[in-house]
């Protein structure tokens, strides 16, 4: 098992590991480098589509050799703290700056993870943001969905990865 998964209580399959390792590594890198936050991986949950409720979610689609999406979801307080770390300015609600911050975090996590999957010919779109208390995001029922729950000094957040066509990822 890859060392980055060792703190988890699950025994990931080889297929899960191929997805989880790049996304966890890139998520940690983005939060560490852009926000200065240490991030701990708390849990990985498979195939719990639509079960999570959040305040602000960034969605980034993949197309080409791999199809699917990544959703980065934060509660309002974490999103506000991330925006403050990004810009040095405190926001009181889900303002345009907060929405933009969540979009950029999603873009960086999805974009850099895509390159670490080792699949050529994968394109990313532009991030879409959903805000609204207790919303949930559903995925293509054909997709394998992995949800990773992280903890930061300012609260928890999750990323959900939904991929159709896992065969394209090299072993």
């Amino acid at each position: 098992m890859h060392s980055i998964l060792q703190d988890l209580t699950i025994e990931p399959s080889a297929e899960q590991e191929r997805i989880l390792v790049p996304f966890i590594q890139c998520t940690k890198d983005v939060f560490s480098m852009m926000l200065g936050w240490p991030v701990e991986t708390v849990a990985v949950i498979s195939d719990r589509q639509g079960a999570q409720r959040h305040d602000c979610s960034g969605i980034l689609g993949f197309s080409g050799a791999l199809r699917g999406s990544i959703v980065v979801s934060l509660d309002q307080e974490v999103a506000l703290a991330a925006t403050e770390a990004f810009l040095g300015e405190r926001q009181d609600s889900l303002t345009a700056e907060v929405i933009d911050t969540v979009g950029e975090l999603t873009n960086m996590i999805g974009g850099s993870s895509k390159d670490r999957l080792g699949v050529s010919g994968v394109a990313i779109g532009l991030p879409t943001i959903i805000s609204g208390r207790n919303h949930c995001v559903s995925f293509d029922p054909r997709a394998q969905v992995e949800m990773i729950r992280f903890q930061t000094p300012h609260g928890p957040f999750t990323i959900e990865i939904a991929i159709v066509g896992l065969d394209a990822i090299p072993q």
């Binding site: 925006t83 990004f86 810009l87 345009a96 700056e97 933009d100 911050t101 979009g103 950029e104 873009n107 532009l126």
Partner: peptide, 8 residues
Amino acid sequence: DSGVMRKI
């Protein structure tokens, strides 16, 4: 296209 990136 990201306002926060332009600020950074």
